[in-house]
Design a protein around this nucleic acid. Sequence first.
RNA 1: CGGCUUGUAGCUCAGUUGGCAGAGCAGCUGACUCUUAAUCAGCGGGUCCAGGGUUCGAGCCCCUGCAAGCCGACCA
Length: 569
Amino acid sequence: MNNLELSEQEAIRRNSLQKLRELGIDPYPPHEFNITTTSLEIKEKFNEQENNFPEVRLAGRIMSRRIMGKASFAELQDHKGRIQIYLNRDEVCPGEDKTMYNEVFKKLLDIGDIIGVEGSVFITHMGEITINVNKFVILNKSLRPLPIVKEKDGKTWDAFTDPEQRYRRRYVDLIVNPKVKEVFIQRTRIVNTIREMFQEYGYIEVETPVLQPIPGGAAARPFVTHHNSLNIPLYLRIANELYLKRLIVGGFEGVYEFAKDFRNEGMDRTHNPEFTVLEIYVAYKDYLWMMNFTEQIIERVALALHETTKVQVDEHIIDFKTPYPRVTMADSIKKYTGYDILGKSEDELRQICDKLGIETDPGMGKGKLIDGIFGEKCEHHYIQPTFIIDYPVEMSPLTKRHRNNPELTERFELMVNGREIVNAYSELNDPIDQRERFEEQVRLQEKGDDEAMFIDQDFLRALEFGMPPTSGMGMGIDRLAMIMTNSPSIQDVLFFPQMKPEKKAVELTEEEKLVLNLLKENSPADLNDLKAQSGLSNKKWDKAIKGLTTHKMAKVTKNGEDLVVEIIS
RNA sequence: CGGCUUGUAGCUCAGUUGGCAGAGCAGCUGACUCUUAAUCAGCGGGUCCAGGGUUCGAGCCCCUGCAAGCCGACCA
């Protein structure tokens, strides 16, 4: 990269970098810099009378500077926050040589540079806890200017807000927007809280395959990839259910996994192609036990984050205090539509959908029709945590039939803020019933349901060896994080949400431009004529035409004996 | 996939009827030894998302494309 492509500020920073080297200062030093404290610890514990921080060493990024001749203030940001530092020329440079202050600090350092400081803590006349620096070292010279966000009395100026920039350059977002960092710390706290609880119960955290020959355990379109040496297609997992259940067959009595799942579907405020799900399976339990367990988890997470069960989400205050109400799916649909779906045939359900104005297509079986009614008419009503229980058997092919009604299954979902965040059931462990349910899925597939499940023969084989009665549960960690941090978009709880690639501006060499201009006047053109016209040497011509074809600006085709070059607009 | 909105300096944003490209912060030069959106004086900085069209003249009008956000469709 040459200096002509740099912005003025970037060029100045590179120039400062050079000058630092000329002064014998390494802008990227190799040795460690040991800190004795953090910005937060100083702010929490400093006591002026005791003078309890007489010598501190601290490192961080310069976030602002206020230079007043022979004395300066700046703000240093470390992983715990920001603290003001004070540099007095004659304290930083006690001898005759004032270079470190006059040149290095005032001229060659910038906002964004990372430095280490040594000094003592005091309180300024304005009452701000500050480090009086007597020595500093450069730990990293920053070559790009940061967005400058200023704040006073809760008002913010020039915030870094453009969503595209924030998501594509998350590192910048994290540097200048402290609240963003806080959301991700809370996300980690959610996972840690759940993991701690499971460890107390003695359940085992495991890992199962992401690359699967048969994508099972959920109804979704998978990503396909290919394994070269096995020469088979492999799918990125859409769920880890079938593998965790194999482990229950193998004798584990409580297993869980925080898993990245992948679904090749649309993206919006609540969907990212890769997302995190917690799945847990516990032997000798049923879905009623799992419901109690689930509400304990959720309440504990709320308390860990907020020290209360009440959480502000959008315009609602959601209370995660247990127990949560339990409503059967049939009752819910009856309540919000007036229709009783129990015992209805597929045709009857389709008529109900028509009357309710819900679009259907012939590929939809009973399960999808009922799911459609619930999703359209009921789901959004459940703002406060509510268990929806006892789903129709047609929409739950991996679930044990209900103990009192064979049309239903022992399944629940937890709805919060009008959205599902947990799905759980008593696992189907009757291998013959399971095989029939899979075969029903195949029939749905033949009717055109492209999300219906495949038959996993090895999973059936495992069930035939015998799986104890088991309850399993899956929880959407991203959506839980959205609710617990009051984030309106899934992009706010993913460090690097999926984005379309940035398109680089195509830069052409002089030779490429020359050939392109010739093509603009005459396209398609005979390759040899064009080459002669360009007057380029063999090597330069080769480079130019290959450049244009890789940029997809020109195309070379063989037309019998002749090679023809065509412009692509 | 459809509708709406947005894209201008490192950042946040103005830009009138189509008539020399603007501000604040940041940057540079200078002053200033307790400032905090530091202050004061001066100066520089632009592929107006890309490509095409209309026009004497386009940041602005028209067309095509790219990217993003919101809403909807689809989808857990």
